[in-house]
Amino acid sequence: MRLVDPSGFREIIHDPHTDDKIRREKSRDRKRGGNGFSKTEAKERIKHDYQNKRQRKAQLKRLDYYSAKRNNILDRLEKKRNETEKKGLVKIKFGYTQAAGYGVHGQYHTFVMVEDPTTGQIYMTRAGPSANTAFGSGAASTSASQGGSASASAGYGEFGGYGFGTIKAHATTWDSLTPFDKPEDTKFIQEVAELAVSYDSVVSDMKSYAANINSKKIAYFPSGPNSNSYAFSFVEHLGIDRPTPVVGVPGWDQGL
């Protein structure tokens, strides 16, 4: 015998012995002029209601558990997203200073900066000639500053092109104490890109890239490869398409 719960939650299922007992009690009650009441059936319904409540309570508990678990996951994702947004994207920029002999040739020297979105600290990497020359600041120059044409075919021997030596790269914090390319000497800043990477990872890249270039001992030429070649090659190393400079910088289109 099956008694269907009006709520539709579950069916009341009795064993054959209980069904027979209920039928006998109902038949006896009708003979007495009743409506077919069964004491056993009433007890079974109470038992069913109790079991039904327990099942509902367990179901709600499971729902609460999975809801809480889902909310916890969403909260963690939201927290992670907020932390990412708080950190922000690291900004890669070019800084431009006047190259040595600027009054003659009007050209600029390029260096690369990365800004910590949390602290605002800026780290930079740049390059210049290793030889102690008038261009020791690392500023690139054109042939005008040399009073003649600069040719990459010229001999350079142990001192690199035209006696400028090799490309010497540096990576350091960018502030007023920086021995070269100081903030007060920077004439232009060009926004290059925003990267979804950590500030520390870019700083690490700057250091390792500078060390790698220094180990190659690439001859420095005023027309390139030079400090500008280094700066533009580094941003390509970060996976950024080589940008177009906003001022005149010889050697910017030469890779290292």
Rank of each mutant, 00 (worst) to 15 (best):
G160A: 01
T178C: 14
A171Y: 06
D181S: 12
K187M: 13
A150K: 04
Q190P: 08
P183S: 02
L195E: 04
F180Q: 12
S176H: 09
E191Q: 13
F188N: 09
A154W: 05
T172S: 07
G147M: 11
N132Y: 01
G155K: 10
A140G: 14
E184C: 15
T178V: 10
K187Y: 12
A152I: 15
A144G: 02
A154E: 05
F188K: 13
N132M: 06
E191W: 05
D181V: 12
N132C: 00
T173A: 06
Y162E: 02
A139I: 03
S149E: 09
A169P: 02
K187Q: 15
S145T: 15
P183N: 02
Y162A: 04
A150Q: 07
A171I: 08
I167R: 02
G136S: 15
S151Q: 11
A144E: 11
P183G: 09
S176G: 13
G148H: 06
T173N: 07
T166Q: 00
P179M: 02
A152Q: 15
T186A: 14
T166Y: 09
S176W: 05
K182S: 08
D175I: 10
A193P: 06
S141V: 09
E184T: 15
S143V: 01
A150P: 11
Q190M: 01
T133S: 09
A169S: 04
S143W: 05
G160Q: 03
H170P: 04
F180E: 13
G155Y: 14
G163V: 03
W174E: 05
Y156G: 14
S141H: 00
G138D: 05
G147R: 09
K187F: 08
F159A: 15
P179F: 02
T166D: 07
G157I: 10
D181N: 14
G157P: 07
K168A: 11
Y162G: 01
